[in-house]
Amino acid sequence: MERIPILRIGTLLLVTIQVDLYDDLALRLQDDLSNRIAELEATGVLIDISGLEIVDSFIGRTLANIAAIARVLDAETVVVGMQPAVAITLVELGMSLPGIRTALNVDLGMEYLRQAATGENGVGTDHYAE
């Protein structure tokens, strides 16, 4: 059965999505991540989607679900590398993924997760009110 590999770095989990996701593959990733977060007591999950050419409402919902599940399991999620065309399309589609932290690239995403784990100020971007 095809699976998306999950990499572990310390207490962080790292996923790079490069293939065109079919629905079951996305759901399997959601399952696998939930299990690994609990099993390894991970503090953060980084999902690199720079290789994704589209994010439709199904994938968008899966990303939001992963972030919500992780939060319940006491881990932060950051989605990094969304392409401009994908972002514009997603907004037009009507999904602004309000509950998801984002960062420009893997480095900034990792930095955010490390700081979040030690309680420092984040470098990721979130919806915040003034």
């Binding site: 990094v80 972002a87 907004v91 984002t102 960062a103 971007t125």
Partner: peptide, 13 residues
């Protein structure tokens, strides 16, 4: 507003 939202999705403020 869409621009601002799209930028946030990409990880910029």
């Amino acid at each position: 507003l869409k621009t601002i939202t799209a930028a946030r999705l990409m990880g910029a403020e």
